[in-house]
């Protein structure tokens, strides 16, 4: 009974309307932080190290809040808040079963807030990081849009962009979007700043580009960015779990498998240059996504 999202959400919203949204907004950063901690631990084990405690990302955030707030200009701080606010908005939209196209755009706005923040200071590293972040968006955004189109075509007539419509599907999304799962996975690897695509601010290589876009953020403001990243990790794997929306456990299994796969990819691959990243993404995953959409039209889903 508890493997069905409909039952759970109906149960919670019967108990108290809006409670589901509140729970998700509060739980998202915790889940994200835990995932990041597990990620660091597994990476350390793969490299033959002991590794930090699983809660290390939480300690990091608390530490950052205890530091002195240093900043260059107010705009820069505003963009950090904006980045966090848009990420929270994405979780709210998903929890309320809203339009997935809207989710995609708000998520893109969050990344753009980070880029604008990085552009608003004069550090050359920050500028390089920002321009590479734009290149990353160029590489993965088309795939996400094709993914949303695929979701739209998968819903029964009349088609709908609503996340709640996905949850009511009789058949898992994976059956209609089999090629979009690997394509989405590639986009997730970019979003997680993992090798081979960690060109704008390496997740593990902190010295390189001196973490690019976040170079000038310090103390509590860096903590905001970290929390927003926790939200982002949660969102990415929540959407991956939506590939099997009819059974929560299988969906969570797919998301976990994707999570471990990206750690493996991260540790097994060297970094690509920015342009090779775009070439790769447009030649491989984007082609897969396009084939999937064409196939859906061929099946008469259009």
């Amino acid at each position: 009974m508890w493997s069905d999202w409909e039952t759970i959400s109906a149960f919670i919203s019967q108990a108290c309307p809006g409670l589901l949204t509140v729970i998700m907004v509060l739980a998202a950063p915790l889940v994200g932080a835990l995932l990041m901690g597990i990620d660091r631990k597994i990476t350390a084990r793969i490299q033959g190290r002991i590794g930090p405690p699983i809660l290390q990302p939480v300690y990091d955030v608390f530490k950052l809040f205890a530091k002195e707030p240093l900043f260059l200009n107010r705009l820069y701080i505003f963009y950090a808040w904006l980045y966090l606010a848009f990420m929270i908005l994405v979780v709210v939209l998903l929890a309320m079963g809203q339009d997935i196209l809207m989710v995609l755009f708000v998520h893109a706005f969050a990344t753009i807030a980070l880029i604008l923040g990085a552009m608003s200071v004069r550090s050359p590293y920050s500028r390089i990081g920002a321009s590479r972040k734009i290149m990353q968006m160029v590489a993965y955004e088309p795939i996400l849009i094709l993914f949303v189109v695929g979701i739209y075509l998968s819903t029964p007539h009349p088609h709908s962009f609503l996340a709640s419509a996905v949850m009511q599907l009789k058949q898992p999304l994976l059956f209609t979007l089999p090629l979009l799962l690997p394509a989405y996975f590639a986009a997730v690897v970019i979003k997680m700043e993992k090798s081979p695509f960690d060109v704008s601010s390496g997740h593990h290589a902190h010295q390189e580009l001196i973490r690019g876009v976040t170079i000038e953020y310090s103390g509590p403001f860096l903590a905001l960015i970290e929390i927003a990243h926790f939200y982002e990790v949660f969102i990415l794997f929540l959407i991956m779990a939506m590939f099997w929306s009819t059974n929560l456990w299988i969906g969570a299994g797919i998301a976990l498998a994707g999570f471990f796969a990206q750690i493996l990819v991260d540790n097994a691959s060297p970094r690509l240059t920015t342009f090779w990243m775009i070439r790769f993404m447009w030649a491989g995953p984007m082609l897969l996504a396009l084939c999937n959409i064409i196939w859906l039209y061929g099946m008469g889903r259009g």
Binding site: G48, G51, P53, Q56, D60, H206, Q207, R211, S218
Partner: peptide
Amino acid sequence: PLYDLERFGVLHIGNPKHAD
């Protein structure tokens, strides 16, 4: 891996603005 400072949470951050 032999000494692994990261097990104490130490990160070699490379940026004075992030450092302690």
